[in-house]
């Protein structure tokens, strides 16, 4: 269990950032999901829950998801069920249970850059950006690869509404477990293809080689490229080899789901119906 010496509700983002900068052992508290797993000694716990950061707003050109929105909010927000093929909503559904998702926050999921994160895998395949109070807005892709050196406070995630369709596939050993491998694929109305692969078990990353092949209409090639060009590791949930294999399978399944001639899609058989929705 993490120990905490002082608990503060920040009254403003500036105050929160000042508190964060005031000491190395000061920490922003998200949903607090892993409090009992950690052993860190926290000097000041900074609570952002009074700053109105829990909104999900569907604006003209983009959707904005506040850092303190819960995963359950993401799951149930009507706009997120509609936009991008509903992948954001779908991606968080298998995470433990309703109670857990009522607590876990978008900000903590994104800022912590967890390898297993379903949400990050889905966001990365969309044109998403993170908004940091100090460093400002930056593409999620860049944030994941090169996060700012100085600790910051993530206030929102913005996603450009570029008419993307998207598909999300996660392979799990049991329904509410972490993914063994997560894959999300999207295509904008301009034909911009994106592919992200998460839980490798390393954090979600895009695969440019595969994206190029997708744009060229070669789904099978893209699936192979995703398997060959990304690194995969072994963990309790699966070996590197198996993950590499799954990357190919799930990429192909996303491709099939997104192909315009959906009638021929491989996963459209009635026996499969409902499985991925479960």
């Amino acid at each position: 269990m993490i120990s905490i010496q002082e608990y503060r509700f920040a009254e403003s983002l500036d105050e929160a950032l000042a508190l964060l900068d005031a000491g190395k052992r000061n920490r922003v508290i998200g949903g607090g999901m892993w409090l009992r797993l950690g052993h860190a000694g926290v000097r000041t716990a900074i609570d952002l829950s009074r700053l109105g950061l829990d909104k999900i707003e569907d604006a003209e050109g983009e959707v904005s998801i506040g850092a303190m929105a819960s995963l359950r909010d993401v799951e149930t927000a009507p706009c997120l069920r509609e936009l991008f093929g509903g992948v954001l909503s779908e991606s968080v559904k298998p995470i433990v249970g309703v109670q857990f998702r009522n607590m876990a926050t978008v900000g903590a999921s994104v800022y912590s850059r967890y390898g297993f994160s379903d949400l990050l895998t889905a966001l990365l395949a969309l044109d998403a950006a993170v908004v940091l109070h100090r460093a400002g807005e930056m593409p999620l892709d860049e944030f994941l690869r090169n996060p700012p050196e100085k600790r910051d406070i993530l206030t929102a995630v913005h996603i450009r509404k570029d008419g993307r369709r998207a598909a999300y596939r996660s392979f799990r050993r049991s329904k509410t477990d972490f993914g063994v491998l997560n894959v999300c694929m999207s295509v904008s109305t301009e034909g911009d293809w994106r592919l992200s692969v998460g839980a490798r078990p390393g954090r979600a990353t895009r695969c440019p080689e595969a994206e190029a092949l997708l744009a060229a209409g070669d789904g099978a090639g893209a699936a192979k490229a995703a398997a060959e060009n990304l690194t995969y590791g072994s963990s309790l949930r699966g070996s590197a080899d198996y993950r590499r294999h799954l990357a190919e399978v799930l990429t192909l399944r996303c491709w099939d789901a997104l192909r315009e001639d959906g009638a021929e899609a491989r996963d459209s058989e009635p026996t499969d119906a409902g499985r991925d929705e479960a």
Binding site: G97, R173, S174, K175, T176, D177, L236, A278
Partner: peptide, 16 residues
């Protein structure tokens, strides 16, 4: 033992 919690040792949920 690596599977020493309900996070790592997965007893079936009602979805399973």
């Amino acid at each position: 033992l690596a599977t020493n919690s309900f996070m790592q040792y997965k007893i079936p949920s009602r979805l399973d």
